Computed example of a mutant assay.
Amino acid sequence: MLIIAGSISVDASDRDAYLRGCSAIVERARSAPGCLDFALSADLLDPARINIYERWESEADLERFRGSGSAEDQEGEIVSASVARYVVSSVGAP
């Protein structure tokens, strides 16, 4: 299993519009084979921050989806990004 997590920052005045523009990407991801979870959300404290969380069954599933990622015009709106890929070796109840 893979987890992609972190955040991006956009201009605070554009964040809500940016997130609305991502709804199609979230829909595509959630219906993609191997996608266990996919979420983009407004941060509660930082008006420019968008939190990212993705969970995938395998690297192959993630790579198949990646070609349909964010639109180029949206990528230009990103001011900064801090996103990492985590490989999960085991999962258990908390």
Rank of each mutant, 00 (worst) to 15 (best):
R49C: 06
L2T: 00
R15V: 00
S70L: 14
S31T: 15
E59N: 12
E77H: 09
I52A: 03
L45T: 04
S41Y: 12
E27Q: 13
V79D: 06
F38C: 01
Y53K: 04
N51K: 12
R49K: 11
E75C: 14
R28S: 01
P94A: 14
R20M: 06
Y53A: 04
S41I: 04
S31A: 11
C22L: 15
V87G: 13
F65H: 15
F38Y: 08
R66Q: 08
A48H: 12
L62Q: 08
V79C: 02
A29H: 02
I25S: 03
S7K: 06
S68C: 06
G67K: 08
E63Y: 06
D46T: 11
G34M: 01
R20S: 03
Y53C: 11
V88F: 07
V10W: 01
G67D: 03
L19H: 03
A24D: 11
D14T: 10
A39S: 15
R66D: 13
S58C: 05
R28H: 13
L44V: 11
E63G: 12
A84C: 01
D37W: 05
A81C: 05
L19R: 02
I52K: 02
S70E: 05
D73L: 02
G67W: 00
P47K: 02
E27D: 14
G76D: 05
A84K: 06
S41W: 02
V87H: 12
S9T: 14
N51G: 08
D73G: 01
D46Q: 11
Y86K: 07
S90G: 11
I52H: 00
E75A: 06
Q74V: 00
A17G: 11
S90C: 05
F65P: 01
R28I: 00
L36I: 02
S7M: 06
E63Q: 13
S70T: 04
Y86T: 09
A42K: 07
S23C: 03
E77T: 08
D43K: 08
S7F: 13
L36E: 14
A17H: 02
Y86R: 05
A60K: 14
F65W: 03
V83H: 07
S58R: 11
D16F: 02
R49T: 07
A93E: 09
E57K: 10
R20C: 05
L44S: 06
R64N: 09
P94G: 13
S7D: 07
A17R: 07
S23M: 08
D11N: 09
E75T: 09
D46G: 03
D73R: 12
F65K: 10
S9L: 13
L44K: 07
L40W: 10
E77A: 14
V79G: 08
S9A: 15
D11Q: 15
C35L: 09
A39D: 15
Y53D: 03
S58E: 03
A5T: 10
I4D: 11
S41F: 05
S41H: 04
A71S: 03
S13G: 04
D61N: 14
Q74M: 12
G21H: 09
E59A: 15
V26N: 03
I4E: 09
D37N: 07
